[in-house]
Write a protein that binds this DNA or RNA. Structure first.
Lengths: 238, 238
DNA sequence: CAGTGGTCTAGACCACAAG
DNA sequence: TTGTGGTCTAGACCACTGA
């Protein structure tokens, strides 16, 4: 393991431990240099990541404050898959695979997915049940060439788990869009919706690999009262 | 201006210019060292920021690819205020200040805002109109001590503009939560809602200063069909 | 004032991608 | 094999904070 990762891990542990408490200052960078026998640049790399994660807030001339994140409810934000989310919250959940087939991108689909016309893709539709109630409808288009041997069972568990852990594919970033759409016939068919509801939350994502190519397009449709999205956001300097 | 900021600005300009086109590789870090007469660490600092902004994707052993962001619709994400959003989209918008008064945080409000009981705060309610239609209802609690001289006119234009540009307050980060709530009486009163709608999008934010203290709590309630949220998210390594 | 984090330099070795 | 980005070092000066 890299040195800055070890330092990072140790500092995170000590924050969980309450060795460093909320609103305390961490040891100064120069002290951390001595503690971990590392250069200041290496220490700063670890601290940078902690700042991005929302664990500390650095202040020039003062030090690094441990952020009172326990006051805040939730992991923090980012690109999180359904299973990870459920695991972290401890809900019982099931996935039903409605459709699992190989198709080819046509012109209409190309505009939606940003994949090129003619690209073979897996076309996957799944419902997600929590406590027996179908609350999420997922539609996925995944580049076939990346994962030709994928099976129905793999996607029933977790698509991301299969791609990242089994195939060691490196997912790099995603562009997401959240909007509120009208409920359509398929939503009614597949989900357990309140008859009075007219709307559904739609989360559309383009997911990219390390080489900056699109490899997946997903739409997740969530029952409105089961939906929650949290984000830790740093203010952009312009 | 700092050296890495100048390099950053120049590279961003050259991407907008199409000097460096989408899916092209930037010059290598060692070439950039020569071009800008800087150390590699300084070059890397500029590139790091570009990667975080979603402008480039770095690849070990290959180089830095310019991301095809023009395929994607929208600025990118982050903590964005209403006026900035409207400016960037070129909509005509008006703000009406419904309430603007000084109150003191009681125990109920303390739990909501994470401010301490007894803290004096500005209590502000505003509606946002686009093309004459009231679509957003904002409720703000802002620490009074930070901005005692604030006026109704300041918040009618833009709260963030006043705090950041006039008072030079440095907003550091925010924790946001998006949920779908039931429409309440105040929503009906203040917003131009479809009578058939039962739900509204609620965006709740705790906003923090550089010293990691809460200084504002905001709830924005958006008419469902006018709401859109986009995010550029990098995959977290665990 | 002393100590902090922010910026910058010049060098080094490594793992990885591509030809 | 060559060149890339990733990691790491040892040093330096600066602007800022708080006593």
């Amino acid at each position: 393991m890299k040195k800055y990762e070890m330092i990072l891990q140790d500092l995170e542990e000590k924050i969980k431990n309450k060795t460093y408490q909320e609103n305390d200052l961490l040891p100064s960078e120069n002290e951390l240099v001595k503690i971990y026998d590392a250069s200041r640049a290496t220490i700063r790399q670890a601290l940078k990541i902690m700042e991005e994660k929302g664990l500390i807030q650095k202040q020039k001339g003062r030090g690094s404050v441990v952020i009172a994140s326990s006051k805040l409810n939730f992991p923090i934000s980012g690109l999180t898959s359904y299973r990870e989310l459920q695991d972290s919250l401890g809900f019982k959940s099931e996935t039903e695979v409605i459709k699992f087939e190989k198709i080819t991108v046509d012109s209409e689909l190309a505009a939606l997915t940003l994949l090129e016309i003619g690209t073979p893709v897996w076309y996957i539709i799944r419902t997600r049940k929590i406590d027996g109630e179908a609350v999420v409808l997922d539609t996925d288009f995944v580049k076939y060439d990346i994962c030709p041997d994928m099976t129905k069972d793999d996607v029933a568990y977790s698509l991301y788990d299969y791609l990242e852990k089994q195939l060691k594919i490196e997912i790099s970033f995603a562009q997401k869009e959240i909007t509120i759409d009208f409920i359509n016939n398929e939503d009614r068919e597949q989900l357990d919706l309140n008859p009075l509801d007219r709307h559904i939350v739609s989360v559309k994502s383009h997911v990219f690999l390390n080489d900056a190519s699109v490899f997946q397009y997903t739409e997740s449709r969530h029952q409105v009262d089961k939906f929650q999205f949290t984000e830790f956001a740093r203010r952009q300097k312009r």
